[in-house]
């Protein structure tokens, strides 16, 4: 049904240069994916922490100046009275929160879709206070001749979703926040349906059931409305905690095919296909009862955050072949292959 590539993981943290000489790359994962010319481009999430020094706490942070972000390090002695150690995720210094690991988006390029070269420079780097804890999990949707990139911005408010566009994967135009906190896992459809742009998104309806997949419409990709909750986590171990959308939905003869993730028991992530109506994508036609991918291989079960397979980047070819790029353990990029026919047959 689905074949993991024998070369997995195809991108590892050690293949990537840090964005500061005292940063260390901890993860290269959760890539957006797109065909551009004769290249496959992945938009990697690169997570970084600081190289530790004996007796000191060192955490990375971004300093913002004139709409740009600069990599900085906060380094204080362990016994500094101004520092409070939290857990492994961060520290509080003079009342301000710092995370031990923060992310930006980097491009990786390949001719064969398997062997990638990671750019030395960041592609999307945090640039304002709404991104002070990083930018994560980019998704690419090509509409007409423009590539729309949505990504998660992280700050003290939690997470929100921002939009940017590019034509050449060199220059990028920021479009601001399209889904206010808490909202992520946004998948933008590659064409208008009934005259409207459409997207899946995942608000955090905390206290009123589990986080679910919603559907929205827009006249211009910037302003969104007509929100509907269309997929809720099911009472099964795979979806016990929450679900969220993946890459841009794929148009098939039978409907819009989306591969979403479930977060289940013991924080295990898995991937499921779902089919949405072609004419009204807020209508769910079919939903797989079993995951098509869940952590089995050692690179999926052991790592920075164990038991995670998470996909926000899919390439589908004219012959129906589907390449699922996925992050394993918040650490590496892996690849699995299937086809549209195969996925439709199990739905």
């Amino acid at each position: 049904m689905i074949q993991r590539n024998p070369a997995n993981p195809i991108i590892k943290p050690e293949d990537t240069r840090p964005s500061h000489n005292r940063y260390r790359v901890r993860g290269t994962f959760n890539p957006g994916a797109v065909k551009f010319g004769d290249e496959t481009i992945l938009l990697l999430r690169v997570s970084e922490d600081c190289l530790p020094r004996e007796g000191y706490v060192a955490v990375p942070y971004y300093r913002f100046e004139a709409g740009k972000g600069f990599a900085e390090i906060l380094e204080v002695k362990m016994d500094d009275p101004d520092v409070q150690l939290k857990d492994t995720r961060g520290v509080v210094h003079k009342g301000k929160d710092y995370l031990s690991t923060i992310s930006h988006i980097r491009l990786a390029r390949s001719r064969d879709g398997i062997h990638f070269t990671v750019d030395d420079k960041p592609f999307i780097y945090p640039c304002n206070e709404s991104e002070c804890f990083g930018v994560e999990d980019a998704r690419v949707t090509k509409i007409d001749d423009l590539y729309y990139i949505n990504y998660t911005v992280v700050s003290g408010d939690g997470f929100a979703t921002a939009l940017a566009t590019t034509q050449d994967f060199i220059n990028i135009e920021q479009k601001g926040i399209i889904f206010a906190p808490q909202n992520k896992d946004v998948s933008i459809f590659p064409e208008k349906v009934n005259g409207k742009y459409c997207a899946l998104h995942r608000p955090n309806n905390e206290g009123f059931g589990l986080p679910s997949i919603w559907y929205s419409e827009s006249p211009d990709l910037i302003h969104w409305g007509n929100h509907k909750c269309i997929l809720r986590p099911r009472n099964m171990i795979w979806e016990e905690m929450k679900i969220g959308g993946g890459a841009a939905p794929i148009k098939t003869s039978e409907g819009w095919l989306e591969i979403y993730h479930g977060k289940g028991r013991d924080q295990m992530y898995s991937l499921f296909p779902v089919l949405l109506d072609l004419e009204d994508p807020s209508v769910v036609l079919k939903r797989a009862k079993e995951p098509i991918l869940f952590p089995i291989e050692s690179y999926e079960t052991e790592g920075f955050f164990p038991n995670v397979v998470f996909s926000n980047g899919i390439i589908h070819e004219d012959n129906g072949r589907i390449l699922i790029y996925y992050g394993a353990c918040d650490e590496t990029v892996c690849l699995a292959e299937t086809s549209i026919d195969m996925l439709l047959s199990i739905l």
Binding site: S130, S155, G156, D157, G158, A160, G176, I177, I178, F179, A180, P181, Q182, N204, E206, E217, S218, P219, D220, I222, H223, W224, G225, N226
Partner: peptide
């Protein structure tokens, strides 16, 4: 938004779809 406990604003051209949040 519940997260952050602060006041945000958004813009719209049609009163029904909203974005440019800050």
């Amino acid at each position: 938004p519940k997260a952050g406990d602060r006041i945000w604003m958004s813009y719209s051209n049609d009163l029904l779809t909203w974005g440019e949040s800050d």
